[in-house]
Nucleic acid binder design. Structure first.
Length: 391
RNA sequence: GCUGGGUUCGCGUAGCGGCAAUCGCCUCUGGCUGUAGACCAGAUGACCGUAAGGUCUGCGGGGGUUCGAGUCCCUCACCCAGCA
């Protein structure tokens, strides 16, 4: 009996968008919702108190990172992830599957989840994949580490998040059909082993769909995951945004309506609209905190638009004397109290508060965006809202 | 006044007889999608060129030695330190 359940409360008439509730032991999650990423059991530079205040409902942490440091046993001793990080709300853990990629073929190919126009520098991979699992070289101290479906699930059960993810292998967006198929088959094997290893039924286990950009593989993967899991996570690599939307359409068409759907690692403003429209319920993404730490802040329409991706660089000289808040429509702590000029100054001075203010604003921005969208779905105004934003 | 040390890109520095401009900072321009990321990449004397590349200047001022001087010598100026 899973003590974590999902219920759809409203479906959009003109699209696949829906509003729902995921109920967990640590509280309810009103979907659709953006899930801030706190890899190391902290959303980088954002206070949990502020996360609560802005209405964040769930945080994602990472199995691989927490296994290396401080170790799952310690977190278990402290009452599990939610208590450990003094969040006291629902949490999710990723399986470490992404690190199979980012420390492996991702490094080798110099690519991310999305193929970039200018690819990064290719570097030797820090892992070795076999059917059994993955041997990593720890990015912290270089020590040898082994991760498998069984180990990942064991770690995640000790961490104690409400939503957990089965262990998978990521294809590179540069992989051929044959390579992608081979990766998918490995993932399918690992997913079944993840289910077998999964004992704590209070945790909802997400299966992950793969198959690169190939329709038949994506459909096969979606059906496979739908058949074996009660929750669907969409994973793997995409060529570009259009391709990603297409992949989501293929996948959603092949899974049951009543199961929650999580989009792994995606979260730019336009993506959120496009993917909710196609039936996604939850998203996690490092974007708000990563770009926040490097000086980019989100601003809402009409200042922000698809062309500037709703982001602006606080470093720019134009903000040096700008008295306006980061975003005129934002109610976050940073926007209620500080000017762009001040934050510009802080950032140029490398003051730690700047990273915190911008990251807090950015997370608030995306969480709030999904809340506005949810409200629009409930009021049958999703398409109208989307038009307002993505002109 | 004497004795040292110094004066090179916006700032700080490297170069110590052979294509001046190394490295850092500042500045500017890109980039970041399940976090090896408070990060990464590029530009940065002037002018011409889309580019490859080319032209011009230039190591405090002046003079000298040398095929050749930021580098050695003389002299002047300024800065720093110590001693008067």
């Amino acid at each position: 009996m899973s003590q974590t359940s999902f219920k759809i409360i409203k479906k959009d008439k003109k699209s696949k968008a829906r509003a729902g509730i995921i109920s967990t032991l640590h509280g309810d999650i009103q979907t659709p919702i953006f899930v801030p990423v706190g890899t190391n059991s902290t959303v980088k530079s954002v206070n949990p108190r502020d996360l609560k205040e802005m209405g964040a409902e769930i945080i994602l942490a990472n199995t691989y990172h927490l296994h290396l440091r401080p170790g799952e046993d310690l977190i278990k001793k402290f009452g599990g992830l939610s208590k450990w990080m003094s969040w006291q709300g629902p949490t999710m853990t990723d399986s470490g599957g992404f690190q199979v990629f980012s420390l492996g073929v991702g490094l080798e190919h110099g690519v991310g989840k999305l193929l970039r126009e200018e690819e990064g520098e290719a570097k030797p991979r820090l892992n070795k994949i076999t059917k059994e699992g993955v041997t990593f070289q720890s990015h912290l101290d270089g020590s040898k580490q082994f991760l498998s479906p069984e180990i990942s699930i064991d770690i995640q059960e000790k961490l104690g998040a409400d939503l957990i993810v089965a262990f998978d292998d990521l294809e590179s967006p540069k992989h051929t059909y044959e390579e992608t198929k081979k990766s998918l088959e490995l993932t399918e094997d690992w997913l079944l082993r993840s289910i077998k290893a999964h004992k704590r039924k209070d945790q909802l286990l997400y299966g992950v769909t793969h198959g690169g950009s190939f329709q038949d593989l994506r459909v096969r993967s979606a059906k496979f995951v739908d058949k074996n899991f009660n929750a669907i996570a969409l994973g793997g690599a995409h060529k570009n945004k259009k391709n990603m939307s297409q992949i989501v359409e293929w996948t959603i068409a092949s899974v049951s309506e009543e199961k929650p759907r999580h989009m792994l690692g995606i979260g730019e403003v336009d993506d959120i609209f496009e993917l909710i429209q196609r039936g996604i319920d939850t998203f996690d993404c490092v974007i708000p905190t990563r770009i926040g730490r490097t000086g980019f802040f989100f601003a809402s329409t009409p200042v922000g638009n698809i062309k500037n991706r709703f982001r602006f660089d606080i470093n720019k000289p134009q903000f040096r004397t700008d008295p306006k808040p980061l975003d005129a429509n934002c109610t976050c702590y940073a926007c209620q109290n500080f000017s762009r000029a001040y934050i510009h100054h802080l950032f140029r001075s490398r003051e730690l508060l700047s990273y915190s203010l911008i990251s807090t604003h950015n997370v608030h921005f995306l969480v709030n965006l999904t809340k506005i969208i949810r409200k629009a779905i409930l009021e049958d105004k999703f398409k109208t809202l989307k038009k307002q934003w993505l002109v």
